[in-house]
Every structure is written in C-alpha cells, then in structure tokens.
Design a protein around this nucleic acid. Structure first.
Lengths: 348, 348
DNA sequence: TGTTAGCACTCTATTTGAACGAGTGCTAAT
DNA sequence: ATTAGCACTCGTTCAAATAGAGTGCTAACA
C-alpha cells in the first residue's frame, strides 16, 4: 500500500515530531540526513500521506503532524526497537538490588524510577489481591465492644478492619468463633469470602455460637474486601512538562481523571493475556485522554496472577523507548513478585 | 494607629480583592455601599496605607492589592467571624452521620468534604502513631523462611511487615519468641520499640533462644516504624483553579512540593497547643508557598494526642470562612477520633 | 482643616497593520 | 518521475495607536 519512500518519510516525520513537538515541513525534512529527495517531492508524498489519513495539518499552510492513525501505523509497522542505554538498564535493575520483602516498596520504587526514566506518568497495578487466599484470620480485642480483625493472605497481604462486637460477647466465645472461622476460611480466595460467610459459616455458627446473627453480621462486614487494589503512581505531575498540556484546562481535565482512580482501572486492567498494549488517543475512550497514549505491559506472576505496568504520556510519546523500558521492567517485576509469592505457593 | 476610616477602607479592599482577585481602585471603592467618601479621599487614605506597608501596587498606576502585612493585620484585627450556612454545617456533620470504625475513612472523608467546601487543598494529619502503645504483636509464618509480623496498637492501628526468618527456625521457638516479645513489649509506645529491643529484649533473648542474634536483628528491623504518619489530602488539584497559579511554572513548583510529603510535615505539624494558626505567604518559609497561606487547626484527641487539619490556599484566601469551617470540623474530628481512641484508653 | 473636584500623567491591555518566515500547492521544466 | 520556481496562505512578531483604569497633585470648597 505505502511505497518505501512513503514509509521512510512517515517515519522520519513522526520521529521528528516526537522529539520537537513542532509541525514538520517539507524543506526541513529534505535537509535531513538519509533523505535525498527535494522538498517538492516530499511535499507531494506528504500530500498523499495526508490524503490517506496518516498526517494532518494544524492550519492550511503549516507543516505536518501525525494523526492518530499515523501513530497507530507507526507503532504497528515502523517501530524499531530502541536499544536502551546500559545506564538505564542498570538503573532498573538497581530497584531489585537489595532484597526487599514488601511488595509495596518494590512497586513504589518501580513507579518512581520508571517515571524518572521517561518523564511521563507511570501507573502500576499489582497482582489482584482478590485472588489471594486466606492464610490466617486473627482478632485482637481492643475494648469490651470493639476489636480489630486481621486477615493475612498466602501472599503476605494484610487486611485489617475495626469492628464492633455484639454486646456481652465474652472472650471465650470470640476465640471459639475465630477458631471456627479459621477452620473454614483458610485457603479460601478473598473474592469468595462473602459467599462462604453466608453459606457454610452461617449454618455452622448457628449451631455453636450464642448470639450468632449479630456476630455473623459483624464478620460479614469485615470480609467485605475492596475489589480494587491500590494503584501506584510515579511522576503524577510529569504531564505538566509536556507542551500539549501547557493549556491549563486540558491539564486539569487530565489531572482530575488521574486523581479519580476509579476511572483509571478499566484503562489499566490487563485485558487478557500478557505483553505490551498501546492505546493511542481516542482509543482510550476517555475525553481526558484525547492527547494521551497509554502503554500497558501486563506480566505474569507465579500462581496465575497478573500485574500491570502502564505509562501515560502524550500521543507524541517516545513509543520505542517506553516499550523497551516496560519490557525490561516488567520482566524484572515478574520475577521479583513471583519469588515473593512463590514461597507461599510451594508449601501448600 | 489606624483611623476608623482607614480600618474600614483596608477591610473593604481586602474583602474585595479576596473575591475578585483584581487590584482595587479608588473609584470603584467609592461607589461601594457603606463607603461615602469620594474617590480622592480614598486615594489619600490608600496612599497612607501603602506607606504603612499594608497595601501594594502592581505597577505605578494600578489599583491596590493587599501586602502580606496587610493580610496579617486583616487576619489579626479585621476578621469578622463568618456565619456558616446551615447547609455547610450539616455537610460537615454528615461525615460522622453513620458510625464509622476506621480512623482512615473518617479522615479521608473529612479531607474530601473540606476541599469541596472551600475549593482549596485540604491536608489532614491524624494523631501521631508513634505515641501509640503496643497492644499485641503477632507473627504469621508464610513459609519456611518468611513470616509476617503484625503489630496492633491500643488505638487499633495496625502495622505489618514481612521479614525473613533465620534458617532453621522452628515453629516452637518462633512462638516462644513471640510470647516473650509480647510480655515485654505490650504497653510500650511505638517510638520506644527500638530502644527496648536492644536493651531489655536482647538480654532476655540471649537466655532463652538458640540463634538469638539473627532473630533479634530481624525483629529490630520490623520494629522500625516510620516516624511520619500518612497525610490525607483533599482537592490536591484545586490550586489549579486559582488565578495566581495560571502560570504553569508556579503551579509546578507548588505541586511538586505537595507531592513530596516530607516538606509538608514541618508546615503541618502542630507547633504547640491547640487552636487555629494562620501562616501567610513567606511566613511559611518555603519558596513554593510564596503566594499561599496555610491555615492549620490543631485539635486535641483523648490521651494527650493531637491531630491537625490544614487548608492550603492562595494568600488571597477566604480566611474568615475557612477558619469557621476548620473550627467546626476540628471539633467534630476531635470528638470522633477521641471516642475511637477512648475505648481503648479506659480499659487499661 | 478635612474633603473633594479636576486634571495631567502613567501604565496595562487591546487592537491594528506591516513585515517576516515557514510552509503549501501547483505548474512547468528537466 | 522528479524538481525548481512561484504565488499564496497562515501564524508570529513587532511597533504604534488607542482606550481605560487608576494615581498623585493642586486648588477650591465647607
């Protein structure tokens, strides 16, 4: 469909625009190394490329700017995988240099480094804790009528919640209850807790515990684990540096979206499978993301889980570099988080 | 020092500027209700007020703008406590409408509502968890060589940390160790944990536990509780709406400061005592806060603790309204958090 | 003596027009 | 098929002109 020359020109235009953020004109193109055509020839090709929808003009006599279709083609067909600098790679590896035992810390550091390496905004979503299984349930009474319930999962994730004890609960009964719950719930994925509570547990409790209904209600509330996991961000403010967001209204729109995390989940959540996914501009289906691209890397974690790494940047983003970085980091993260989780997996 | 007329004029100028963000001229002032002086008279008074340092001009022939000294005087002497709308008050009370058992949830909701009510940024710092006392220490083994340590405080605060067990630790010994630690540490404030570990505990352990040194080290690491508590924010992006931050560079400076929480602690941390404190512009001693004021409300929580509520806005902020709102909310929060903590206090 | 009207002056913001430059599209020559 | 050349378009920059808001000062007034 496209001639070699058109491919070349399209590629150079996009590369140039990504660097400069300025519309690219035929004359400046013709002076580039590797281009031996005259500006007139280039103009003709540009005109054709525009007609095909790969390029746009900002006004009648301006240089050309890639369209979303242009970026899409660029990402799908023209991207030459960029070789990362050794420096960058070792910076990524440095995240895992010292043995860390907290998933949160690893992920937080990853997000930070990734944003510093790209100057874009990074978003990381860890493994879905809903699939983790209960390892242990504990209750620490604080006072006559309140207590803290703590659920530890096989992955080392800890959820805790304060709840009120039904009046006149005595310590023995509470302990008995906790033992009962542990017997029933250990090994159950968090997402199934509610079900279990209302089915198996309810029946059992009725038999063994005095005022079982209030107790049940209290525990049911506790087991209501949030569906969404925490998102980790790096460089939240980096988009302010991008010229496309020098307009404060556009900036606000985007920032507000970033702050309301709910709207981000559908964008970040691994669709299916693993690997890199690039969503350009309107492909994200979100007004605030008009001028943004989102590159998501989904990676496997031991035990059938998945994690997701994302970079949010302007459509004019360094796709090649970002994809390379994501590849490296997602492999590292996959390994690191798996080993963190594996330990709990192989003892079952 | 200042005549009644000067006081009136200063007050009206500041009130007007707070609303409009525009320099106030003599003519527009003279046409205001409650002002019966001619523009010429007002000009003379303005000139005097400027000479005294309460007003400034943005350029030679512009209207007047309050100086920081002007705001300071306004806050100290001219502020008429604003009567809040019933609607606002009930919105604040609504935070506490249903019984909530999590400090985090209450505080997060407070921050959100406060920012919505003011259109500024709200920052809340809960009670200092360093002063909380250990209620219970628990260890949940995950695997042969890793375990989760959980510390529950008397206030219901839960800290958890993953750590690696020394090779060949057996379950009995671990349990023994945990029992020992509990005996020694229950009732100790978090801030003193490190001390205790290295003094009392070390000696004790050497007597009872096999490879006590590795174990000790592991626990010492665990007990290293962060000094700073989490800050809760509301309306982080609200400063974008303020005309003084239409300049994207100023905005970035401020936002970067907000994001690096460490720099905020010294500003928010209750100096001493309780009550409202207003810091205007340079009084905050921070370049990024040049055009900002910070109003802090420190309130008591049962057990000698303190919490802090802060509003970050432009120096041109609605001091009166914000102070009123902070007064109401800080009283509510004081009550709510105290009752959350009181329960654990009165059983000791 | 305090207040005010009037006026000259200053500075900003906005508009206008001219000049420039970067770019395009088209045509004709190579 | 390619390219040189030219007319044309549009955005940007600069300076000058203008309008408007505001000040400071002086002189008149009550």
């Amino acid at each position: 469909m496209l001639s070699d020359r058109q491919l070349l020109i399209l590629q150079v235009i996009i590369d140039d625009f990504i660097r400069s953020a300025q519309p690219v004109g035929s004359r400046s193109l013709s002076k580039k190394d590797g281009i031996q055509y005259s500006s007139a020839t280039i103009r003709n090709e540009m005109s054709d490329l525009e007609e095909m929808g790969f390029l746009e003009k900002t006004h009648t006599s301006s240089g050309r700017v890639p369209s979303e279709k242009g970026y899409r083609f660029y990402v799908d067909h023209l991207l030459s995988p960029q070789k990362l600098q050794q420096q960058d790679i070792s910076l990524i590896h440095s995240i895992f240099a010292d043995r860390i035992y907290e998933m949160e810390r690893i992920v937080q550091r990853s997000a930070k480094i990734l944003s510093e390496l790209t100057n874009y905004t990074s978003i990381i979503l860890g493994p879905n804790s809903q699939q983790n299984r209960v390892k242990k349930l504990q209750v620490v009474p604080l006072h006559d009528d309140t207590a803290i319930a703590i659920i530890v999962t096989d992955t080392g994730h800890v959820e805790n919640r304060r709840f009120s004890l039904p009046k006149g609960t005595n310590a023995d009964e509470l302990e008995k209850m906790v033992r009962l719950l542990n017997d029933q719930l250990v090994g159950v994925p968090l997402m199934d807790l509610q079900d279990h509570i209302y089915k198996e547990i309810a029946i059992l409790l009725r038999r063994h515990i005095a005022n079982y209904d209030l107790m049940l209600q209290a525990f049911a509330e506790i087991m209501n684990i949030p569906v969404y996991d925490k998102l980790f961000f790096g460089g939240k403010m980096n988009m302010m540096n991008q010229p496309e967001f020098s307009d404060i209204d556009k900036l606000r729109l985007l920032m507000d979206m970033i702050e309301t995390e709910e709207s981000l989940y559908p964008l970040i959540r691994p669709a299916q499978g693993v690997g890199i996914q690039v969503k350009i501009g309107k492909e994200n289906d979100n007004i605030a993301m008009e001028n943004c691209s989102l590159i998501t890397a989904t990676f496997p974690i031991a035990g059938g889980q998945k994690g997701s790494l994302a970079i949010l940047g302007p459509t004019r983003m360094e796709y090649s570099r970002v994809i390379s970085l994501l590849n490296v980091l997602s492999m590292d993260l996959s390994k690191a988080l798996s080993s963190l989780y594996f330990q709990s997996k192989d003892e079952s």
